[in-house]
Each structure stands twice: as structure tokens, then as C-alpha cells.
Design a protein around this nucleic acid. Sequence first.
DNA 1: AGCGGTCAAGTTGAT
DNA 2: ATCAACTTGACCGCT
Length: 298
Amino acid sequence: MRLGLCCIFREEPIKFRRTTAAYLARQAPADRRQYLADIAGANAAALKAALVYCRENGIGAFRINSQILPLKTHPAVGYDITDLPGHADIRAGFEACGRFSRRHDIRTSFHPDQFIVLSSPNPDVVRRSIADLAYQAEVAEWVNADVINIHAGGAYGDKAAALRRLEVVVERLPPAIRSRLTLENDDRTYTPRDLLPLCEQIGIPLVYDVHHHRCRPDGLSVADVTARAAATWDREPLFHLSSPLEGWKGAKPARHHDYIDPADLPVEWLNLELTVDVEAKAKELAVKALRAYLDAGR
DNA sequence: AGCGGTCAAGTTGAT
DNA sequence: ATCAACTTGACCGCT
């Protein structure tokens, strides 16, 4: 089982830079481009450092923050990579990450945030979402990321209709997005039971988040969803795991704990060829702790 | 140098 | 009707 680290580090001094639209808007255009170029270059270097850390610590996957090129598609201060001074070097930095990822078999992925909604009845929301996915797909090409994982979005009072809209949009996506796109069950709206039929029908892999499934049960067992979700993948499946902050009987079980309680790791996942992204607030420490637990148990 | 308010976006559900 | 929760810090203006 390959364990994955999500986006950031708790103790290791590897940081990704960001900025704000308000700040950028105040800068003269040339200053703005240079500032963004500095951030992009720094983030390429940070990604390389993250991948090296993963390799040296037995971490087999890394999720890349969707702000790796901050505000890339912002309506007022968005930019093309070729607008940035030194853009060839910036791109080369990301491509070096891609070669490292291939050579050392560190799987990388993207998880666009909640604003990316392909099922929205608002065409402008969908259009802007696709623009953001296109940016992440471009970086994914550079860095050898095989997954861009999103949620199914809102229900708008009619889940079936929303999923039909989603299907239409997905089928029209450009190949760089479509070939990487995956769907994940969430903890309030779309369960595995809702998503599996669509995933099976049009060939979108399901990222099975067992914590969300436990927060929002749908009558399917962990064993059933594990098998059906794994079958939606034409490559190594990617699943998500976390533990509840205050236990399963706490007020808000959806909130994530610092670490993974090994009891939350489904026994059905053991001995599968699988990537498990560890969604735990102690980040690399939690991944290493779970790794140690698994290695000790063999 | 350190502190704290603020940060693009959508949707749901708790208050 | 409003607002926190999603991810969670990092940034930037101010002292």
C-alpha cells in the first residue's frame, strides 16, 4: 500500500508560497509579473523538495496544492505562464519534478477545491471551473500527475439532474483534463451509491473516501464500495483515509484528527495495490506513523 | 521583527 | 437571514 501526503508539511521546513488578489492588483504590471514569477519558481523548488522528502521517507504519493500557481485563472489578476519573466525556467523546474516523480515512482495528484463545480446550473460557474481545471491539467502534464480529483458539487434539490449535467460537461472536457479527472464521494451530498453508477457508466475513477462514507452512510458496505470503486480504475486506485478529531461519537466527526487511528483503516484495503492519501493534520508525521504501524504488522 | 486580520470562487446546513 | 465548514496556512499591513 502506497501512502500519500496531502499538500503541506507540519514540521519539515518546506513551504509553498501564495499571494492575494488585492495585493497583486496594487502592483504595477511589471512588478506583478516578477512577483508571480518569483512565487512560481519558489513553488517549483518547493515541490521538488517535497518529492525528495517523500522518496527519503517512504511516502509514495504527494497531493499538490491547487494554488501552486496562485490566482492563475483569477478574473482580474489571472495570467498566462508565458506572461512571467523566466517562464521557460519555471516550466523546466516543474518538468524536473515530473522526471523525479517518474524515476522514483512518487505518484502526484491535484485536488481542486470546493469552488470547482461541474454540476452547477450556472454556466458561468462551470466555465470558470473548467478554466481552473485546464490550468491544473497543464501543470499536471509538467509534473506527471495522473489524477485531478473533484467532488460532484451541489444537489440543487435534484441530484439525478445535477449528475446528468455533470456527465454532459465531463464528456466535453479536453483530454488533458478528462484523462485525469476523478470523482470523490463527499460527506454531505454525494455518497458512493450516488456516484458509482455514473463512474461505472462513463469511466470516471471513483476516489473512495471512507471517512466521508462513514459520516454519510448509504447502505453500501466498505467492502462493497472498495471493490466497486477499485474496479472503476484503469490504474492503481487512489482512496482517502482520515480519522475523526473527537472520535466517531464526537460532535463533528467530519473534522480530521492529527493522526490516523489504525482501526479506521479498512481491513479490505490491506493487500490491495492501492494509493491511500492520508488526510490528517499532522501531515508527514501522520503518514510516517501509519507507515510504521503497517510495516510493524507484517 | 512580530502580530493579527484577511484571503477568488460555491454549496450546504447549523444557528 | 447569516455564517461556519470545507483545506489550512501564509501573506501583508501595521506597529
